[in-house]
Design a protein around this nucleic acid. Structure first.
Lengths: 204, 204
DNA sequence: CTATCAACATGACATCTGTCATAGGTTCCC
DNA sequence: GGGAACCTATGACAGATGTCATGTTGATAG
């Protein structure tokens, strides 16, 4: 055997983090150097240990997995990033690849695939869920403008038009216009449905 | 060593399922008999293997972890159930205990606690997150009636008053009355916020 | 330089939403 | 038999929401 593949883990859910570490540690050719619950700690650890592979979740406190990926590619380009996430959203995949990730694995794939994926990216290969990969081309992209997105997100959490107008220093009418635009772009029939649709597509 | 604790796993996310199995299998005194992705399969497996402990997620397809717990308590009372879930919701905990669970462990607890919890419940003990346990007494209970709950849930997914009235064969006015009641009971200022509050408390 | 697009605005209108008072019917319990 | 809770309903009102037409401004891509 040549040399162990050295891995750092970033995953905010403690139980999963520990279990993944156990899973990878079983493999004779993989060594887990450390596992961390947020992006910042993971970034530090990568700088220190310079592992072959960083396995990262997307949704994490402090620094998201996507931002973490970008930073690692910039500061430690020899470390390959494997994104491990719940979300089969073309939008996320595209952003992950743009940020420089070498792999994108879904949490509902069998656990055996993790070690395989780690080996593959450590070798310089790419691992992308085939179904998602095909979707990425056909996937519509987010039609919302920044303002529409922001307002729709907050409206979807229950903020009223008036509250939004006040806190963003807009007129009520303007807020309603943005929401109306968003609703029509998404083919929804009200703000609630619009927010749900956008969330589902990973646009909020 | 007396005898291994025999465990069946029910968890719908494949990666976590596999990783948990690996985690538990490392322990010399624990044996994982099988792991399943939905409640029905798990129930069958429990009937067949009669394990000391069933570790189950709550949100699963076909049969929820809560329903699974109730069925297992009824059909195989010698199997203890340990609920493993993301949600720190007193409402869920209460329902789990009512259904006969022996333990309620959160997925953001350290992974070491899992094996410890499995041992504890196999011994006949109870494992409940202490913070949650204290909350359960002070926790208000769901003030919604069945109708209010149903309508609020669907309204929260974007169904309009008219659609709800049609599909439930009610008048628009009646639907609005239920929503109005729910909104006021929850101290919200509109249906969206009401749905969010109720979901957060685990009432929907 | 100009066409386009995002951001913001106004006013008007129709419709939807939330509230309130009131009330008939059912089921269950004391 | 009388409450109590729940489900259902009506009508009326104020206020929130969604739509449309139209316009200004600034940035930016061609």
């Amino acid at each position: 055997m040549t040399q162990k593949v050295r891995v750092v883990l970033a995953e905010d859910q403690s139980m999963l983090r520990g279990a993944l570490a156990a899973l990878l540690s079983i493999e004779p050719d993989i060594e887990v150097l450390g596992s961390f619950s947020d992006g910042e700690q993971a970034l530090q650890a990568v700088g220190k240990h310079r592992p072959e592979v960083l396995v990262a979740d997307i949704e994490m406190p402090k620094m998201s997995g996507l931002e973490l990926t970008a930073r690692v590619r910039e500061l430690n380009p020899e470390t390959r990033v494997l994104i491990l996430t719940t979300f089969a959203r073309p939008g996320y995949l595209r952003r992950a690849l743009d940020a420089g990730a070498s792999g994108y694995l879904l949490k509902d794939r069998p656990s055996e695939e993790l070690a395989a994926a780690v080996r593959e990216v450590s070798r310089g290969g790419r691992v992308v869920d085939p179904q998602l990969a095909s979707q990425i081309w056909s996937a519509e992209k987010d039609p919302l403008t920044d303002r529409e997105r922001l307002i729709l997100r907050r409206a979807g959490d229950g903020e009223t038009t008036i509250e939004l107008a006040r806190s963003l220093r807009l007129t009520e009418g303007t807020v309603r216009n943005y929401l109306s635009e968003a609703i029509s772009k998404l083919g929804a029939s009200n703000r609630i449905e619009a927010a749900r649709i956008a969330r589902n597509k990973g646009w909020l």
